[in-house]
Design a protein around this nucleic acid. Sequence first.
DNA 1: TGCGTATATGTCATTTATGACATATGCTTC
DNA 2: GAAGCATATGTCATAAATGACATATACGCA
Lengths: 104, 104
Amino acid sequence: MRESKRKKLESKGWRIGTPKEFLGMTDEEEAYVNLRLKLAQGLKTRRHARGVTQVGLARAIRSSQSRVAKMEAGDPTVSLDLLVKSLLALGTSNRELATIIARS
Amino acid sequence: MRESKRKKLESKGWRIGTPKEFLGMTDEEEAYVNLRLKLAQGLKTRRHARGVTQVGLARAIRSSQSRVAKMEAGDPTVSLDLLVKSLLALGTSNRELATIIARS
DNA sequence: TGCGTATATGTCATTTATGACATATGCTTC
DNA sequence: GAAGCATATGTCATAAATGACATATACGCA
């Protein structure tokens, strides 16, 4: 993994691997984080495409604007569940979801 | 949604829609639940294919055998995060993950 | 039959994610 | 530059997911 990428992730609050010593991400860890980032990115794109505000989406999923913002920012305290539910709420099909994931 | 399917889901602990009155799942709810079930099923299949026990997988993801069993049973108290992490721990690529999801 | 191994199910204290809220930043338009 | 709207960031009490554990069930095999 590139150093710049690690820095970017860590700045978002991700702590990879053991707290004691940073030895790089395993393949699974990297796949997992990439997956989340792709979904976050896909969410933002699709929300914009539909002309929905963060407040609007938040209402649709019974959450809050701040949580939507955090989702799109790739905040590690947001679950995959909420990300996926948000995408589905925007009308994303499972097939489209698969496309996003395949590219991650 | 078929009645038999609803019964099966409810028996697993899923409570769809409002607690007060059951009016059927929305498309998103159905897509979400199907997604989880497909992942659960995919997990079980792949674990068997690799000859790994639930205890073995639990060790790999630093969880417990009971949680793995619940994952595979489609228990609603298990997060998508854990399901996805488990699949990745079994060596599933993001592309394979996409395939599972596309079929849900 | 009893024994070992794998999986299922239930419970619970602790950890983590959550919605809500406040407030800050940015970006138009007047 | 103020007013309006969209988004970002931080905090917190509550709710939900977690790992661990106990125990049950199931299946094979000696």
